[in-house]
Amino acid sequence: MKCKINGDVFNFEQPINIQEVIQSLGLDETRIIVEHNETLIKREQFTSRIVNDEDNLELLEFVGGG
């Protein structure tokens, strides 16, 4: 299945949960903010929320800014 993550297309063998997406990309989970199909996802939902074909994920964080 194909989904968009931060604007780029990613391929996964089957629908997976958000936690698995983060792990497969090797990202620091502690500072990540996840928006799944324009809905903000709580950390405790990372394992239950499934990413399906054609879904859109935004993986965001805070950075320095003024």
Partner: peptide, 16 residues
Amino acid sequence: TFAVRRMNLYDKDLPN
């Protein structure tokens, strides 16, 4: 004050 941005998915060594 700080900003919200997309995470860099490819270069995880970029300092933040």
